[in-house]
């Protein structure tokens, strides 16, 4: 049962990712990305990480991707088709970067060895456990990340206020 679900979700994730990078309309890409996010949330569920799965949807699908769509629609309201602005070195750069990513990921896999994934403990991904781990083990990175986000918000405020100052 679990491996069947895993294969369905994994294929859906890879398929929608491929769709995302091959569409010409940005809105279609964004919707394909939504598919990727939802399949990833399903994979988290298979690992008993309910809380992480829900957060994946609430934050990525519910906030970030909606803002993407927002920008796409405001910029290319009529067709949703971007006038594709190509950087000069876009293609070679993309190939180099994705090869580097592939190398890094395969290095990690080969180092760890391809073995059967251990079955996670059932209570591992609940809200309680995630909260405890976050505020116990990872309290420093957690707080640093929040300061970083605050800086981002302040930056946005300052940038949008710029005109009224002069």
């Amino acid at each position: 049962m679990r491996s069947v679900l895993f294969w369905i979700l994994a294929l859906a994730a890879v398929g929608s990712s491929l769709t995302m990078i091959t569409r010409s309309k940005p809105v279609h890409s964004a919707i394909a990305f939504l598919g990727t996010l939802v399949s990833l949330a399903g994979l988290f569920l298979l690992l008993y990480a309910q809380f992480v799965a829900i957060l994946q949807i609430v934050i990525y699908a519910g906030a970030i991707l909606v803002l993407f769509l927002f920008v796409i629609m405001l910029l290319h309201a009529r067709s949703g088709e971007g006038s594709v602005e190509k950087l000069r070195l876009q293609r070679p750069l993309a190939i180099v970067l994705s090869l580097a990513l592939l190398a890094g990921v395969s290095f990690l896999f080969l180092q760890a060895g391809l073995s059967e994934a251990p079955t996670p403990a059932a209570g591992m991904g609940t809200a309680e456990e995630v909260g405890k781990t976050l505020f116990d083990h990872f309290i420093l990175p957690f707080e640093v990340a929040s300061v970083l986000l605050l800086a981002g918000i302040l930056g946005a405020v300052v940038l949008s206020k710029k005109e009224s100052w002069s």
């Binding site: 939504l34 939802v38 309910q50 809380f51 799965a53 829900i54 957060l55 949807i57 609430v58 699908a61 519910g62 906030a63 909606v66 991904g125 609940t126 809200a127």
Partner: peptide, 13 residues
């Protein structure tokens, strides 16, 4: 387990 958050997640979809 995520209870009420489920509603937020689904309505955001």
């Amino acid at each position: 387990n995520a209870g009420i958050l489920f509603i937020l997640a689904v309505s955001s979809i």
